[in-house]
């Protein structure tokens, strides 16, 4: 398996919205490669005939009735907000569009 370059790690950090500085990149990139090397052993172990498992206990069709249940008050909802205004969450200016 190929090693992650420093740039690739920076790209992953970008996708994950973590502002890694140079020192952190230097520190983390080799560690990630050690981990990836260890987990790469599973590649090719299970063939196409093996069905992937996403839930250990197979269940289907767990539904809720369409009935309103009480939620939070606005005060509770906003209780942890770093900033709020007009009963809304105040966030810094948003760049770019929604997806």
């Amino acid at each position: 398996m190929s090693q992650l370059s420093r740039d690739e790690v920076a790209h992953l950090a970008d996708l994950a919205r973590i502002d890694l500085d140079d020192a952190e990149l230097d520190h983390l990139a080799p560690q990630l490669n050690v981990i990836l090397e260890a987990v790469a052993s599973i590649q090719g172990v299970a063939g196409a005939d093996v069905v992937p498992t996403s839930h250990p206990i197979p269940m289907t069709n767990v539904f809720r009735e369409d009935v309103v249940v009480p939620g939070l008050t606005p005060e509770q909802a906003l209780s942890g907000a770093p900033a709020s205004e007009d009963q809304k969450f105040s966030v810094p200016r948003i760049l770019g569009d929604e997806q």
């Binding site: 009935v67 939620g71 606005p74």
Partner: peptide
């Protein structure tokens, strides 16, 4: 009557953050 994944109401035009719960927040 309720949201996709929680029991909060869906009415249009309600006061801000009055139709929320831990799940949809």
């Amino acid at each position: 009557n309720t949201k996709m994944f929680c029991g909060c109401p869906t009415a249009f035009g309600a006061e801000p953050n009055t139709q929320v719960c831990p799940t949809c927040l």
